[in-house]
């Protein structure tokens, strides 16, 4: 590797990190990517199909893996970054094992975690056997496991609860996770794919169908699959003696409290920043959003820059994004890093 090549370190090997890495690699830069897990791919590996077209998450994964194979030779797995030491010329990235690396530019792509469902105890996750999260449902679907209740019965009625851990001041997350709505619609349809006879109900506060073909999928859910949408936020879930669940909400459109029995309840858990994001961000003097995501320097014209020159952010470590949006954002970050490095070289 030639010495005069500028060096970019990317933290996180999910879709955002991988896509940016391959784009920067193909542009001729020296790119090093640190992934804390054994394998790259991030949360994409835990998902089955993607909205709105039900394509397999695996296909996107393969696409990213192929790109990266060609363009980025240096990937460190099981490499957890603990902090960044920013400096005028070079930034130092320090790993948990004590090794450190220097780079001209650092791109943070640490991604998200799902909100821990048990934090909303009133929904009974990990207390009642038949309350699962959207991630648990994806896992079942991906592994081809039958959609059954905890004791192996076919559920006749399934409820999906929107906004679990999002838009909720009481858990400290006032922001909207944006993608749970469409995930709820997608999963409701997937449930109907597997269990055409099951009744499926979604409990929502607002349906936020902003993406391409999202509203169409919402319409399809109602028209083709007969899924019912009830406007009311669930206040609590209780377990009946037979293990089925009772949901309490207000059917706000009829203006009356509603209680309903369900065999299976899916919590559409929101997105929160990954655990290490806060520590890394603080070490690099970055700003944070109200939800503790990493703040961009400017929402419109500097979406991937931060208030520390040479440190960039992309993907779901800065805001909840879909897979498609994440990849676009990663490309945007790559383009900005390239232009920034050129400016830097010209100044020196």
């Amino acid at each position: 590797m030639s010495e005069n090549k500028q060096h970019i370190i990317i933290i996180g090997g999910g879709p955002a990190g991988l896509e940016a890495a391959s784009k920067l690699g193909s542009a001729g830069y020296r790119v090093t990517l640190f992934e804390k897990e054994e394998q790259t791919g991030g949360k994409l590996r835990t998902w089955y199909k993607l909205y709105p077209g039900f394509r397999l998450a695996e296909e996107v994964q393969d696409f990213l893996a192929n790109e990266i194979k060609i363009n980025v030779p240096e990937i460190f797995s099981n490499a957890e970054v603990v902090n960044i030491i920013p400096d005028n010329k070079y930034h130092t990235v320090v790993l948990a094992d004590g090794r450190s690396f220097i780079a001209d530019a650092v791109l943070i792509a640490t991604g998200f975690e799902l909100f821990k469902g048990e934090k909303k105890e009133e929904y009974g996750y990990r207390i009642y056997d038949n309350v699962i999260t959207s991630a648990d449902l994806e896992k079942k679907l991906r592994l081809g496991q039958p959609l059954t209740t905890a004791n192996g019965q076919t559920p006749a009625r399934i409820g999906l609860i929107h906004c679990v851990g999002s838009r909720d001041k009481k858990v400290g997350n006032v922001y909207c996770s944006r993608l749970c709505c469409i995930t709820g619609v997608k999963q409701a349809i997937e449930i109907k794919h597997h269990l055409p006879k099951a009744e499926v109900f979604n409990f929502y506060m607002d349906m936020r169908m902003f993406g391409q073909n999202f509203e169409e999928l919402y319409i399809e859910a109602q028209q083709k699959w007969g899924i019912t949408f009830i406007r009311g936020r669930v206040s609590e879930v209780a377990e009946n003696i037979d293990g089925s669940l009772q949901l309490k909400a207000e059917d706000t459109l009829s203006g009356r409290p509603i209680k309903m029995n369900f065999d299976l309840v899916v919590l559409l858990v929101g997105m929160v920043p990954a655990d290490r994001t806060e520590a890394i961000g603080k070490s690099a003097n970055l700003g944070f959003t109200s939800g503790s995501f990493l703040a961009s320097a400017d929402a419109q014209i500097k979406p991937n820059e931060t208030n520390t020159p040479g440190i960039f952010v992309t993907g779901t470590c800065k805001e909840p994004l879909s897979v498609g949006e994440t990849l676009s954002d990663a490309r945007s970050a790559a383009v900005r890093i390239i232009s920034w490095l050129r400016e830097k070289r010209e100044i020196n």
Binding site: M205, G232, R233, V234, E236, E250, D251, P257, I258
Partner: peptide
């Protein structure tokens, strides 16, 4: 208020 209805759903009196 955004009218989500959680208050009414959990309300002791509303039962």
């Amino acid at each position: 208020c955004i009218g989500c209805g959680s208050c009414t759903a959990t309300c002791s009196a509303a039962k």
